[in-house]
């Protein structure tokens, strides 16, 4: 968040960190590859990796640098989540509409994110694989109601058919810009001073956060 606002102070440019959360096999990688490279299961993908991707956008004259952080979705790495998503401006929580479990997983993530980062983070809940509508196991209504109840936005996407992905990211960026601007205004005039103070707090926060999260994982 500091990076986002720090850059914003220099001009009309923002840097955002977005984490990608979701169980393995829900199509996180395909989603982000489709967005950044516009490719799906392509044999000729030259990209070496799909775990850290960047995208530059221009939204209404505001330059946005998006850094998309993929996270390991396996259950065994669940406890490491906090290390990944600290200081992130947005989170994309992906589930597979044909897999009820993956949706339950999303619910867990949301709870955790809200607990750790409060309302400063923009959440997107994404039902992927809508090309497999026939095998849908998570009802649209259930998902949308849930999203609304936790202050997140819900999206339907298909990485295969390239549906809904542009919208998802564009929307998210707009929301993040909004949050950043509100944040900036709230801090008001003493920008540089509060900036250092904020970061100072963050540094102190950092260490215990990692440790306490580690503690959680061993018990859970």
């Amino acid at each position: 968040m500091a990076a986002g606002t720090g850059a914003a102070a220099g001009g009309r440019s923002f840097s955002f960190k977005v984490v990608l959360l979701g169980e393995g096999c829900v199509g996180k990688t395909s989603l982000v590859l489709r967005y950044c490279e516009n490719k799906f299961n392509d044999k000729h993908i030259t990209t070496l990796q799909a775990s850290f991707l960047t995208k530059k956008l221009n939204i209404g004259g505001k330059r946005v640098n998006l850094a998309i952080w993929d996270t390991a979705g396996q259950e065994r790495f669940h406890a490491l989540g906090p290390i990944y998503y600290r200081d992130s401006n947005g989170a994309i929580l992906v589930y597979d509409i044909t897999d009820e479990d993956s949706f339950q997983k999303v619910k867990n993530w949301v709870k955790e994110l809200r607990k750790m980062l409060g309302n400063e983070i923009c959440l997107c809940i994404v039902g992927n694989k809508i090309d497999l509508e026939k095998e849908r196991h998570v009802s649209v209504q259930e998902a949308e109601t849930y999203a609304e109840s936790v202050g997140a936005k819900h999206y339907h996407t298909s990485a295969k058919q390239n549906k809904g992905i542009e919208e998802l990211f564009l929307d998210l960026c707009k929301r993040m810009i909004e949050t950043a601007q509100v944040d900036e205004r709230a801090r008001g005039n003493g920008s540089s001073q509060s900036g250092t103070a904020r970061r100072g707090v963050q540094i102190i926060d950092d260490e215990p956060q990692v440790q306490s999260s580690g503690g959680c994982c061993s018990s859970g």
Partner: peptide
């Protein structure tokens, strides 16, 4: 190493382990 083995871009699911 992952790319050579799997012939696709590595995701975080592959990378972290």
């Amino acid at each position: 190493a992952i790319k050579i083995t799997k012939n696709e871009p590595a995701s975080a699911d592959d990378f972290l382990p």
